[in-house]
């Protein structure tokens, strides 16, 4: 296998398809990357939350969302989810970054059923998150997780040392 693998999937704006995407993600991470199995389940959730946001807010029914996985061997996994900007929330990447930053503050209190996914799942289980406006409309959210950080954490757990903390690098 090449050192770099790129997979792109385009799917209709419908949550119905997410079960298949989660299955694919789990299998792909387990079989083609050096991330431990636990992380395959975590990336399954990361993908699901990103896509749900795109389906719910970013792309109108009848349009599409696009998922791109880039895995560089023993280095990192990058996942991008693009929407078309035709959905019910007409916001920019800057707006979305502000929502993310506000909810990430220690004193932010989550209320309601929704709103935890981007910060508490995507934010916690990735090392970098990047929001960009797409030409022609829509937003691309790109997240990255480094293999070395996962390995460091496993080593730390095994030796019973205090957990290392990897703060997300957020770029716009």
């Amino acid at each position: 296998m090449d050192d770099k693998t790129k997979i792109t999937i385009t799917l209709p704006t419908n949550a119905y398809f997410m079960s298949g995407i989660r299955d694919f993600t789990l299998t792909m991470i387990k079989n083609t990357t050096s991330f431990p199995e636990k992380w395959a389940f975590r990336f399954q959730s990361v993908i699901d939350e990103l896509c749900n946001n795109a389906v719910e807010y970013g792309s109108a029914p009848g349009t599409e969302i696009k998922i791109t996985y880039v895995y560089t061997k023993d280095d990192y996994l990058e996942i991008s989810v693009e929407d078309t900007g035709t959905g019910k929330n007409k916001i920019t990447a800057k707006d979305l970054k502000k929502i993310f930053d506000d909810r990430r503050k220690a004193d932010y209190i989550f209320s309601g059923i929704r709103g935890r996914g981007l910060v508490k799942i995507v934010g916690e289980w990735t090392d970098e998150i990047n929001f960009t406006d797409r030409e022609g409309g829509g937003i691309t959210v790109t997240v990255k997780k480094y293999v070395k950080n996962v390995r460091q954490k496993i080593t730390t757990e095994e030796t019973n040392e205090p957990n290392l903390t990897f703060h997300n690098k957020i770029t716009l």
Binding site: R103, R104, K105, A106, D107, Y108, I109, F110, S111, G112, I113, V119, K120, G123, E124, K153, T156, E157, N163, L164, T165, F166, H167, N168
Partner: peptide
């Protein structure tokens, strides 16, 4: 639904 406020601070990025 009166959504509960968990009053749990956002988890720090630790394992």
């Amino acid at each position: 639904p009166v959504p509960a406020q968990p009053a749990v601070p956002i988890a720090q990025p630790t394992e």
